[in-house]
Amino acid sequence: MFSRPVALAATFLLTGWTLPALAQDISTAATPACVERARSDGADPKLCLAQVHAPCQSISAETPALVTLCFDTAREAWTRATAARLDEITHDAPEQIGARTRIDTKYDLLAGLLQCDRLEELGHLTEIEDDRLLLEKTRCEATATGLAYIRLLWRVTKD
């Protein structure tokens, strides 16, 4: 069985759709600076999430599979950024801090993903179309993954 991104990509190939250049704009590179700005301004760092998800939000809701693929791309970007930051912390910080940071991040992510599963199950009780339900779950997963990364940055600042 194919993974969700592979299945969505196959759908686009069969229908002639391609992921717009907007998805190439998905980058978490500016997120650390955004979180630091939020810290110094006393602002909510969750606003940094919107910057990364903006390309996905700009895709027409009339193409839910395309929006779903975009959010899956965002989720993957958040995952890579989190892994890279955790690797830095593990390498640079004392073992106890690295272990605690990994545990905190793991459970931040799991708590968010658990809510995504809950929303999906509740969605099956409604008459929502499967492609819309997949879109909402994927958006939720991208958000949960992004928030776990933002919390990681908020808790541990790079010296």
Rank of each mutant, 00 (worst) to 15 (best):
V52N: 11
Q24W: 07
L110P: 06
A10V: 08
D41F: 11
R80T: 15
A77I: 02
R80N: 15
E121M: 14
H124K: 14
G112Y: 02
P94N: 09
Q115K: 06
E36L: 08
A77Y: 05
T82R: 01
Q115P: 02
A29K: 09
F71L: 05
E76Q: 05
T79F: 02
A38E: 09
K137G: 11
A142G: 00
D25W: 07
Q115G: 10
I103H: 11
L110Y: 12
H124W: 11
T143Q: 10
T126M: 02
Q96V: 14
G98M: 08
E88V: 01
S27A: 14
S40N: 15
T101I: 05
C116P: 14
L133F: 10
E129P: 06
A10I: 12
R151M: 05
A81R: 02
L86C: 04
A10G: 02
L135P: 04
D72A: 08
D25R: 15
L19Y: 02
I103E: 07
T15W: 03
A23R: 01
D44H: 04
T138Q: 12
A111R: 13
V156A: 03
Q115I: 09
T73Q: 04
E127L: 15
W78D: 00
R39T: 10
L147F: 07
T101G: 02
T63W: 09
L14K: 13
L134S: 07
V156L: 00
T15I: 04
S27G: 07
Y149E: 08
A142H: 01
L47M: 09
E88Y: 00
A77G: 08
A29E: 08
L47D: 10
P55N: 10
R80C: 09
G16W: 05
A38G: 07
R75Y: 09
P20T: 13
L125D: 10
A99N: 03
I128F: 05
L153Y: 00
I26A: 03
A77R: 04
D25F: 05
A29I: 06
V67F: 05
I103C: 06
D130C: 05
R37A: 09
L110V: 12
T73L: 11
T105P: 10
T138A: 13
C56S: 02
P20N: 10
E76K: 11
G112T: 00
L66M: 13
E36W: 00
T145N: 10
A81C: 04
T68Q: 07
A74Q: 14
A43C: 09
A54D: 12
T138G: 06
T145C: 03
L153R: 01
L113R: 14
D108H: 12
G98N: 06
F12T: 08
L135H: 11
A65H: 08
E62N: 14
T82A: 03
L119N: 13
A148R: 04
R100A: 10
A84C: 09
T68K: 01
R39P: 02
